[in-house]
C-alpha cells in the first residue's frame, strides 16, 4: 500500500481521555484517564474483560462516541474538527457485529468503502480493487456470494477486506479474529504487519493473549474499573497485569522473542 496525499498516515494522540458507557454523562465509567501516542507503523492491541470499554474506545477514536473528558487528536487536528468525509480517508472502523437486512454480494460491500472514499474512481477499477482485497483475505471465491449466506468467519473476512479497502491508514478493528480459524488469524497477523510496514497504524481489540502478543508492538489493557495501562507490549502484557485485569491465574513463558500465555481454565476448590 502506498499512500497518496489525501490518505497520508497521521499519528494518533489521546490526552487524558475519559469514557463512559453509552457515551453519555451518566454511564458507567470505563476509562478515567488514558494518555497515549500511537505513531506511524505501530500496531496496538486492546485488551480487557467483557464490558471494559474496548469497543467504546474504538468508537470514540472513530468519532462515533463523544469522550467524557480529555481529547483525541488525529494528525494536527482534534477529532471533533474533522469532517466525516475527510475522516473517512484517514481511519477505517470495522465493527464487531454486522446486520445484513437485504441481499448484497460480498464484493459490493467491499466496493462501497472504496467508492465512498474515492467517488471519482472508475466503476470497473472499483470492482477490481474490491475483488483483489477479498482475494488477499482468502475470500476471493466468495466475491459473488450473498453476504447473508456466509459463515461467521467468512463474513468477518469480508468485513476486514472492506476495512482494508477503504484505504485509510488508521485501522480500528473490533475483535477482528473472533470468528477466524488459526490459518486466517495468521493471515490477519501477516496483513497487519504489512500494513504497519507501510506506515499504517492499527488498533485491534482481541481476547486471545497469544494472538495479541503476535499482532502487537504496543498494548492497552483496560481493567473495567476505569484503570488502563498502555505502552510497549513487553511492559503491558505481563502475567500479573493480565491476571489482575481479568481475575484469572495467568502463567507466562518467555521463549526468546516470543511470550506464551496460559490461562488455567479449571477452577479448583481450595
Amino acid at each position: 500500500m502506498t499512500w497518496d496525499a489525501e490518505h497520508l498516515p497521521q499519528s494518533l494522540h489521546l490526552d487524558r481521555l475519559a469514557l463512559r458507557a453509552g457515551g453519555t454523562g451518566h454511564g458507567r465509567l470505563l476509562v478515567s484517564e488514558l494518555t497515549l501516542h500511537a505513531a506511524l507503523g505501530e500496531r496496538w492491541v486492546l485488551l480487557g474483560p467483557n464490558g471494559a470499554g474496548k469497543s467504546t474506545l474504538l468508537m470514540a477514536i472513530a468519532g462515533l462516541v463523544a469522550p467524557d473528558a480529555g481529547s483525541i487528536v488525529l494528525g494536527e487536528r482534534p477529532l471533533a474538527q474533522w469532517r466525516s468525509e475527510a475522516l473517512a480517508r484517514r481511519r477505517a472502523w470495522c465493527p464487531q457485529f454486522w446486520l445484513d437486512p437485504f441481499p448484497v454480494s460480498a464484493w459490493e460491500t467491499v466496493a462501497c468503502a472504496v467508492l465512498a472514499t474515492d467517488p471519482q474512481r472508475d466503476a470497473a477499477e472499483v470492482e477490481q480493487l474490491a475483488r483483489s482485497w477479498l482475494e488477499r483475505l482468502d475470500a476471493g471465491l466468495l466475491a459473488d456470494h450473498d453476504v447473508r449466506t456466509l459463515s461467521g468467519g467468512e463474513r468477518q473476512r469480508v468485513a476486514l477486506a472492506t476495512a482494508f479497502a477503504q484505504g485509510a491508514p488508521l485501522l480500528l478493528l473490533d475483535e477482528p479474529s473472533s470468528h477466524l480459524d488459526w490459518a486466517h488469524q495468521r493471515l490477519l497477523s501477516r496483513l497487519l504487519r504489512q500494513w504497519s510496514a507501510d506506515h499504517g497504524t492499527a488498533l485491534v481489540a482481541v481476547h486471545d493473549l497469544n494472538l495479541a502478543w503476535a499482532l502487537a508492538t504496543h498494548a492497552i489493557l483496560l481493567d473495567g474499573k476505569g484503570g488502563a495501562v498502555c505502552g510497549p507490549r513487553e511492559r503491558v502484557l505481563t502475567a500479573s497485569a493480565i491476571g489482575d485485569a481479568y481475575g484469572v491465574p495467568v502463567t507466562l513463558t518467555d521463549d526468546g522473542d516470543a511470550r506464551w500465555f496460559r490461562v488455567d481454565m479449571v477452577e479448583r476448590d481450595e
Binding site: 462515533l64 475527510a86 473517512a88 480517508r89
Partner: peptide, 19 residues
Amino acid sequence: HELDWIARGDAWAWTIGVS
C-alpha cells in the same frame, strides 16, 4: 447510492463519510 450504504449499517456508513 448512499442509502444502500446506510442499509448496511448506519454507524458504519457515517465512518465512510455519509451524512
